[in-house]
Design a protein around this nucleic acid. Structure first.
Lengths: 215, 215, 215, 215
DNA sequence: AATGAATGAGTGTTCATTCAT
DNA sequence: AATGAATGAACACTCATTCAT
């Protein structure tokens, strides 16, 4: 009556992303979502087979987009230097997260909960993400561009740098009066990440710490 | 009957930290907590004036300890070089978070939600945290040890590096078979952070990017 | 698209009888019925003006068939002895119920509920049933074949014997490994009923109990 | 506040029996029950762990009482003739059902539905009931008092005669203006059942029908 | 004739909390 | 200090039905 199929489904998702982001998944009721989307609450079960299905739809949408950012750039490995590929990949992810900053914040928060669904997300998407990062890092080390640091720690740092600004956007806003969804912020922040790559990752200074102290 | 005042209160907090961490604040019921703590649910309202009060107690406990890690080291600024102060502060925080890794994960997740209480946390504790970091960085720049990078971005990166391993501990566990609560991990990870300080923060390479492009 | 008018209507009724029988009227949803019948749920409202209309159609179908069994045999009263008419009537009903055992079970169960519709059923069909039984019994008593027992109790017993095997078919199946829908069972059971007629109803032993004790 | 533990629990059960009887289990809402019992709907889950638990409590209460009627009389087998034991057992059951006529109607109706719970009832209580009847009939046949009729059919007829008046009490009321819960009715009806025992069960007339026709 | 989107009322259940004891 | 009965509001979800197509 008041919307076509596509519209209703999208209205629900849009409202859900805002509310999940603001109040968390468990803190959001289906009635709130329906009210915000100006549709009938029953439509949520109708289209997404329940609140959890709606969550899954959001997660899927995010990770499909997220991973495709990386995938694209991995293909460039054959014709571009690994550090360039890495920088472009990170930039692409930053842009994607900037465009979907509400979704981004809530997804990374939700994945940090020990639920069945977050375990599934990790098992599928994040394992793949690990593999894609691995391809780039491996190539960089082989070419002698990247320092031979423990891969896990490098990737964790990378992911930290990529994710935190969005996850803690409220902190940024209230303490630093800065907004990670602004184009401006992303540009500045990308420079910092590039600096990290150039200085910390590509620096061929001694890596004896790890050689000596740790297995 | 089965516990003294102090014991009951602590039993509740301990159980709450485990469950808030695993299932999130909104995903945890007071009955679950009471059951795990083997006390009567009414005691939660009795001791903490409700579920929210219990949350506040957890948050307070965390941030008091967290900030005191930093504060201690800021006092050293007068007699030790700023980079050493910074390293020690971060190390202290890492250790604190390692010892309270369940609390850590859930607190940083909860603070990312747009609730009244997280706004209060930010206004009090995180503003203070900002100030403490500021003192260290300012001193470092004045002494010509730290590069003159935008303070906000530096602090965000620092906080990212400190927080993410705990926030995404499930990811670390399932993808990397690594546990941030292990002493081993913290030592390795601290080396990476020191590397970041040495290379990225202390590197006096040109900072023209920021001079030119950004305010 | 996938069925003509007649087919769709019948598909719905067939599915409804199975499900009403298994899960009860209130326990069955129109979606379940539509799914089983492989038609669109809206067709139920379309053809039967709602779930209740579907129920009424089932009830009507049953009682029309049920009563015609009796009626046929009442016509024989003029040319056959009453006990023979009675036996044939009961046999006819048993056969009818055997052929419609799913419908039978659910109808007699549903009629035991205090709903508007069951009151209407009673007012129309069961009052007529009473009258038909009355004609046979009256004739039998007049001819001195049937004992002069209270008519209400005789008819209640008759109806009990006819109905219960179908109503409790699950009990029969699981406790006695017997199926009231089998031809075999009905034959055996008919002998028992005939025995009841010969011994209990036709026995002209003293009926003083009732003369003395009861109005 | 408005009732002690025992009272609230019983208020709920009493209200449930009335409503389950009138509208059926699936047709009755927990809010209806709570309203009738003048208690809070949440108490139903609190005391019975949900609507289904309430149903189970009703069923259990009925069958415990029902079976104890039979059990008592089976103990008399050693000192009284089997037909006398049987008559007393049936009379005891009739009285019990008369005193709990609402519960009786709804229980026998509910058991006729193919649910998990009715299957459990049958597996436990009705199998035991079968055994108790068996003990009596076996003794009667051994003593040459009962005709050697197929046990299953005899028991089915017995159960039919016992149950149906209560199950179809609405029919009795509206067609025959008779109430199975009246002491009067039970006495009259018991005479009919005794007549059935004397004439149909104890009659030693030929049982060749079954010998010849059936296995 | 038949469909699928859409609805508002309803479902059973769980919630954090209160209160007399 | 601690309990368990009790509550009212909220929860996610299902219901039979309507209606434009």
């Amino acid at each position: 009556m008041n919307a076509t199929l596509k519209e209703t489904k999208e209205l629900i998702m849009d409202a859900a992303i805002v509310l999940f982001n603001t109040k968390g998944y468990d803190g959001t009721g289906v009635r709130d979502i329906a009210k915000k989307a100006k549709v009938n609450p029953a439509n949520i079960s109708y289209y997404f087979k329940g609140k959890q299905g709606l969550l899954e739809a959001c997660l899927t949408q995010f990770f499909e987009g997220y991973l495709s950012c990386l995938e694209e750039k991995v293909f460039l490995l054959e014709m571009a230097p690994p550090d360039e590929c890495l920088k472009q990949g990170l930039k692409s992810i930053l842009s994607f997260q900037r465009e979907n900053h509400l979704l981004t914040r809530f997804v990374w928060r939700e994945v940090s909960i020990d639920s069945q669904i977050s375990r599934e997300i990790i098992a599928s998407y994040l394992v793949k993400e690990k593999y894609l990062f691995h391809l780039i890092l491996e190539q960089g080390i082989k070419e002698g561009i990247f320092a031979n640091l423990p891969e896990s720690l490098v990737i964790i740092q990378l992911k930290s740098l990529l994710t935190m600004p969005f996850l803690q956007s409220q902190y940024l806003r209230e303490v630093w009066h800065t907004f990670p969804q602004e184009k401006y912020f992303v540009e500045k922040y990308m420079i910092m990440i590039e600096r990290w790559i150039d200085s910390t990752l590509c620096s061929l200074q001694e890596t004896r710490h790890f050689d000596r102290k740790i297995i």
